[in-house]
Nucleic acid binder design. Structure first.
Length: 442
RNA sequence: GUGGCUGUAGCUCAAUGGUAGAGCGCCAGGUUGUGGCCCUGGAUACGCCGGUUCAACUCCGGCCAGUCACCCCA
């Protein structure tokens, strides 16, 4: 068999990176649970028609095909989910009778997208998603809670500080309508490109695709320029002189999100009126998250309010949610050398093996340490002690345990300092910092 | 999915149209009470496939992978 090669867009980490990923997921998970989000997992596949309800994303979906399937089975075809929100919406509809509302859940799962990979962009990647849905109507205050959860979840990690950029679709849509534009969606798509192509090109686009006049395009740009770390955006928008009921509603909501953030997490959120979000199902607050100092990475966590994603003929389950791009976040930080782990393996203690005959005794020592939660392995062979120490050193195992011979005490050596002391496997405990792998920034 | 750039040992990098070296790392041995220094020796690479050529790692094409832009978005 020839040497296997990597698959584009399907990253596989080495053990140290995987250790970091698990640590990060554990922390995120515990924060989500602290806010009362219930764990959930949905299947990896959805019927294709369910997945495509979201819009023109068909090209991104990996279709599942049975090798022996008849060719005419296409209308039953399945696709791998490309996010966790759409499957969740389906799940809510399916289980509405068994759930109690408002329902809040988290899901940390792989998703798949058939896109061209590059740094921080993969075809298979991990997302950590929270959503809150309610029946018929969803109180607005959840839109203010979501950023606080994320602030806690990501703030508890050894990663750069985050900044959540917040906007509200109603502000944009109301403003565009108040301005007299008839195709707010097109205007939104044009404004969304502001950072990429600049104001002049956006103005052209607004005129071409959204049917804006020159002065309407300029007004859209003036709205998009507004950015504030507090509620001062409200006055700035009103100063533009556009009136519309939806605009008032949106501004009011955005003010409340910013007020809640100011009280519970000062500096976390910034109102950024150019944030649009590509997905068309958002109807209210939208979020995008940057790492401070790593803005070039783009958004590592985004979401928003959706009113119509989970609805059948007569039932409606409006929701709000956000998703942390765990793989993207980690891939980018790994690339920037901004995350590291204290050792590549969990092992804290290596029990040295004097002779192969003493393996059983060494296994007992290891078992005694493990019983007290100390990750331990026994040396692979009874090589010279120098080699056994090197074995530990290579792996970053901090302690080597030496069985005492002829009734002498066992000893344990910290191979970083060289300190070696008498020790008893029933009582010895390493310093807390050495007990487990430690994840640190930088 | 479209286009650009890149692809030499585990890592960072050399050299050359006539089949490749260094540093670090790795392995073995020596020294060492139980390693880290030092000494000696060793293994490992031209991403893959094809074409041009007497001869290709070096030129050309395709593929794969990485990266960047578009697209889209975590």
């Amino acid at each position: 068999m020839s040497k296997p090669t990597p698959l584009s867009g399907f990253p596989e980490w080495l053990p140290p990176q995987r250790a970091i990923e698990q640590y990060v997921v554990d922390r995120i998970r515990s924060t989500f649970e602290l806010y009362g989000f219930a764990p959930l997992e949905t299947r990896a596949v959805e019927p294709l028609d369910q997945l495509l309800r979201k819009g023109e994303t068909s090209k991104e979906v990996y279709v599942l095909r049975r090798l022996q399937a008849a060719e005419d089975a296409s209308d039953e075809s399945l696709g791998l989910h490309f996010d966790l929100t759409v499957p969740f919406a389906r799940y809510v509809l399916e289980n509405a009778g068994k759930l109690t509302f408002p329902f809040r859940r988290y899901q940390i799962q792989k998703v798949w997208r058939g896109e061209r990979p590059q740094e921080g962009r993969y075809r298979e990647f991990l997302q950590a998603d929270i959503d809150i849905v309610d029946r018929d109507t969803l109180p607005f205050h959840y839109e203010a809670e979501i950023p606080l959860v994320i602030g806690d979840a990501l703030g508890a990690l050894p990663i750069p500080q985050i900044r959540i950029q917040v906007n509200n679709r109603k502000v944009c849509e109301g403003f565009y309508r108040g301005l007299g534009l008839t195709d707010p969606e097109a205007a939104l798509r044009a404004v969304d490109k502001l950072d990429k192509i600049g104001p002049d090109k956006v103005a052209e686009l607004l005129i071409e695709t959204a049917g804006a006049t020159d002065s309407q395009a300029k007004a859209c740009l003036r709205l998009a320029e507004i950015s504030a770390p507090d509620t001062s955006f409200d006055a700035a928008v009103r100063a533009l002189g556009v009136e519309h009921p939806l605009l008032d509603e949106g501004l009011d909501e955005l003010v409340r999100v910013m007020e809640a953030a100011a009280e519970h997490a000062p500096g976390l959120c910034v109102a950024e009126l150019k944030i649009a979000r590509g997905l068309d199902y958002y109807t209210g607050t939208v979020y995008e998250t940057q790492l401070v100092g790593f803005e070039r990475f783009g958004s590592i966590c985004s979401g928003g309010r959706y009113d119509n994603l989970a609805s059948t003929g007569n039932e409606r389950f409006p929701g709000v949610g956000i998703s942390i791009g765990v793989s993207r976040l980690l891939g980018l930080l790994f690339g920037a050398d901004a995350l590291s782990v204290s050792r590549p393996v969990p092992t804290c203690v290596l029990v040295a093996l004097p002779t192969e005959e003493q393996r059983a005794a060494c296994d007992r020592t290891a078992a005694a340490l493990r019983r007290r939660g100390i990750a331990t392995e026994v040396s692979p062979s009874a090589a010279k002690y120098g080699k056994q120490i090197r074995f530990a050193e290579r792996r970053g195992i901090p302690y080597v345990w030496f069985p005492g011979s002829d009734g002498a005490h066992d000893t344990v050596k910290d191979i970083r300092s060289g300190d070696q002391v008498d020790a008893d496997a029933a009582t010895w405990t390493p310093p807390a910092a050495d007990l487990r792998q430690q994840v640190t920034g930088g």
